[in-house]
Design a binder for these strands. Structure first.
Length: 327
DNA sequence: ATGGTTTTTACTGCGTC
DNA sequence: GACGCGGTAAAAACCAT
């Protein structure tokens, strides 16, 4: 393969190559002939033998906005902090447990009692502190994602309430703040009748889909949240406006969904898929001719699903229409 | 863990512009 | 020939048990 071909190859491939090159450069030191190592943390290329820094300020291939020692090595660009068990990653000061002063001399009994009280209070502040920090970070996170998804304030409120409850009921240990925050927002969006699909959530969240669904399930179960299955028509407006569908098309889409629900052919089917299919079918009815791939792209749904759904929708609409005609 | 259902992926053929 | 669409088979994801 020639040089030009390499450079015009797909973005993804090119990036992978760059990363791979950054990790395992088998270069030789110009000074002593030793092997060069790339130190990603400091962005330097260093000779393992003589210590010569060949290239500084290289691109850091690590995660962009976090660099905790995440050892799981997953591919997500940003992972949760490696340890959620300690809010401060063990960096804070602790009062020693030994009843000795700085020189190792034993303390008087008066002093010992004083120290004991100090330890107690220190611990109390530390844990309260940790919850507050936790909450602060989570709320910031919720806010960020909510704006990215264009979710209204009341949803953010609900999300923070859910998060607070999760925190109060000690659901956090073992889970990432980001994960629970995302799950809270997802649940809140659905409760507020402005649902966002899991895919949309993961697009702005710092956790991957798997973790989000897992955490979401967990939070809903533990908090006994009542989250009704999303109503497909709630997605219609958004899809319609993104695709520039007319108002008529929009209400036709809702109509289709309604009759399908009455015909009982919607249960078990993904609400997003239904909405996408309805929008597509409506565009047919109004001669606006959106393509299946267009609709699929904005809805995050495959064309096959749209095909299957929209036929069902039209069938259902027909039979409901017949009943109306009979009545 | 397992089995049933839904969705996705990948591929094919058909008609149209 | 590219594009939109329809269908199919097999794989994957999801869900309840």
């Amino acid at each position: 393969m020639t040089e030009t071909e390499t450079t015009i190859r797909s973005y993804g491939t090119e990036r992978e190559e760059t990363e791979a090159a950054g990790r395992e450069s088998e270069l030789v030191c110009p000074e002593c002939g030793g092997t060069l190592r790339t130190d990603e943390e400091h962005g330097e290329t260093v000779c393992a033998d003589c210590g010569l820094v060949v290239e500084a300020d290289a691109i850091d291939h690590g995660p962009e906005w976090r660099s905790f020692n995440d050892s799981r090595g997953d591919k997500s660009r940003v992972g949760a902090p490696a340890t959620n068990m300690m809010h401060d990653k063990g960096l804070s000061t602790n009062i020693g447990w030994q009843d000795k002063d700085a020189y190792g001399n034993a303390l008087s009994s008066e002093r010992r009692r004083q120290m004991q009280r100090l330890r107690t209070w220190h611990e109390r502040f530390r844990t309260r502190d940790s919850k507050e920090r936790n909450l602060k970070q989570a709320l910031g996170e919720i806010d960020r994602m909510a704006s990215a998804l264009g979710l209204p304030d009341n949803v953010r409120e609900t999300a923070s309430v859910i998060y607070r409850r999760a925190l109060d009921e000690d659901l956090l240990p073992g889970r990432s703040i980001e994960g629970v925050a995302s799950a809270s927002l997802y649940a809140a969006a659905r409760q507020g009748n402005t649902p966002r699909s899991l895919d949309e959530l993961t697009a702005v969240s710092r956790v991957d889909r798997m973790e989000l669904t897992r955490t979401y399930r967990y939070v809903v179960r533990e908090l006994k949240l009542e989250v009704a299955p999303a109503d497909p028509s709630q997605y219609v407006g958004r899809f319609a406006s993104e695709l520039g569908l007319s108002d008529e098309g929009e209400w036709r889409a809702r109509d289709l969904i309604k009759s399908a629900q009455e015909a009982g052919v919607t249960s078990g089917k993904s609400p997003v898929g239904l909405a996408a299919a309805a929008v597509y079918a409506a565009s047919l009815l109004t001669n606006e001719q959106l393509t299946q791939s267009q609709v699929g792209a904005v809805a995050g749904i495959s064309e096959v699903t749209i095909r299957n759904r929209y036929k069902e929708l039209l069938d259902a609409a027909e039979s409901v229409g017949d009943q109306d005609a009979d009545a």
